[in-house]
Design a protein around this nucleic acid. Structure first.
Lengths: 294, 294
DNA sequence: GCAAAATATTGCGTAAAACGCTATATTTGC
DNA sequence: GCAAATATAGCGTTTTACGCAATATTTTGC
């Protein structure tokens, strides 16, 4: 069943802005424009009054709005009824995430899901989050738990689970190469600090950006794959690292490191589920996906 | 909105036979098979149990059946509501006219009308204009585009679209039986000219009147139905014809014929819409009728 | 018992539809 | 006056739907 036109309509009714509504629907503005136009032609009425600056709902659009919401609710209720009727979906879903994410999110994500769908097997693969997007795109994995990339490819859908800041960490024992005043960093303080960084990925991008803004090149002691490895090396006294704060929440090494109160702070980023849009047709994947609020 | 899968489902639920259900839906059995399969995959349930000889509705299929009917009913109700809201007309109008009139007038008559009333279907029948009045009177057609009859029956209403003269046409190549001086016709010039005339209708009436005024009987080579046929036969050299000048405006045979400058000229006549007055009560017909100025 | 008929499904090539990029026209804010 | 923002449309590409033909299986008629 293709209810996309109703989704498109509701998004536009909500946003009253083609750009924002198209973003919300994961389509281009031209696709949304045509979809709405086609719906209007099918119905023989104008649903939105619009020029190139304003979008408002017409009276007919308001009538249609109620219809669209009810229709989608009934469709979802029908699906839920059928699912209940058959007692469950069955099959397997493969999930890729970092060790950290597996500690932090999987229980929350899956505990209710597994109760609801005991016949669905979860295949969990852990690894460097920097690989997550690529593995989903290559269809090695159904879903990944990963940071939202700066530029999300069009074929992917993303749903946030949480937000986490990136933080600088240092050995708790201290070291003479630590910046004296991390709250007021200067190039001279940071130019000789040995840095333990990711090889790639969002945290690496943000680290590079921070140092560029500082006007200094980081002195890279090691580039490693995986935030846990960074925590390990920092805990062993090899240097300063940058990791998502959530990595620390479950780390057995927490007593070996400290968070540096560096200013300006590194940005927060979303951690969430990432999936190929077209895989959402699968009832299994859609069921997992649908568990999270939008 | 694409509700075809629901239509497919309901047809199969009704027929329990892919061949008959696909016929009912105007699709091939393979299309129906795939449509049902896709719906089942989307819902994650089996709607029909089937082998190559039997189709039965599953329990989930029965649940879905109620949903499908209600959904289509609500869609139709929504459309009806919106139509009532905008006073949108829907239905069909049948129009009868000659091929010539279809070329000359339909675009002008219908293009704006169709934009204004996209839900009205036009059924177009073409034929000899001499039949137009009779077909309207017999209610075979709602409206006709035709010449104004000399005596308009009281039950009919007529609205002019344009005026056209009747003209004599001859083969461009000439012929020895052509009148030497069509501007000053004499009975002797015309008595042997082979004439290609309509079997009936206004142009035939006017031709008969002209020849009577000339004091000669036309030598009729052929009586044919349809002005285009007359143009074809004249172009092939069979004789002289009388047709409305607008017939020539779109004729591919224009280079094969010439208009004879006959005096006295045949009269002009109105071409326009003709309809039974009492059919104007119909909102559909009134809408089309009202487009033309009085 | 066997061939023919009937039936639902699937592979495959083609047609149709959907899509996004880019260009366009218009409006707004500075 | 001009840059930015916005909705729409042209166009080429991608994706999806389609039907034909082949297939496998079952049923029916002889």
């Amino acid at each position: 069943m293709d209810y996309r036109p109703l989704n498109h309509f509701l998004a536009l009714a909500d946003h009253l802005h083609f750009g924002r509504a198209s973003d919300a629907c994961h389509v281009s503005p031209s696709t949304l424009s045509r979809s709405i136009r086609q719906l209007e032609e099918t119905l023989g009425v104008t649903l939105f009054e619009r020029d190139n600056r304003h979008v408002t709902l017409t009276r007919e659009g308001q009538l249609f709005h109620a219809y669209a919401r009810e229709t989608l609710e009934q469709w979802q209720a029908m699906q839920a009824t059928l699912m209940a009727e058959t007692r469950e979906l069955a099959g397997e879903i493969s999930i890729y995430c970092s060790v950290t994410a597996s500690y932090s999110f999987l229980y929350r994500l899956l505990s209710e899901f597994r109760q609801r769908h005991p016949r669905i097997e979860i295949k969990l693969h852990t690894g460097d989050p920097a690989d997550a997007i690529a593995r989903v795109q290559a269809e090695n994995e159904d879903i990944a738990i990963t940071a939202r990339p700066r530029s999300l490819p069009d074929a992917l859908a993303f749903k946030p689970l949480t937000t986490s800041p990136l933080v600088f960490i240092a050995p708790r024992d201290g070291a003479d190469w630590l910046p004296a005043t991390p709250e007021t960093p200067t190039p001279s303080q940071w130019k000789d600090v040995p840095m333990i960084l990711s090889e790639s990925g969002l945290s690496r991008d943000h680290a590079d950006t921070w140092f560029r803004a500082m006007g200094v090149s980081p002195r890279i002691y090691a580039q490693v794959a995986g935030n846990e490895a960074i925590v390990s090396m920092v805990g062993l006294g090899f240097g300063v690292g940058i990791v998502p704060r959530i990595v620390l929440d479950n780390s057995p090494l927490l007593d070996r490191i400290m968070i540096l109160p560096v200013k300006p702070e590194l940005p927060h980023y979303d951690v969430g589920l990432c999936v190929l849009k077209r895989r959402l047709k699968s009832a299994l994947i859609e069921a997992l996906w649908a568990q999270l609020p939008n």
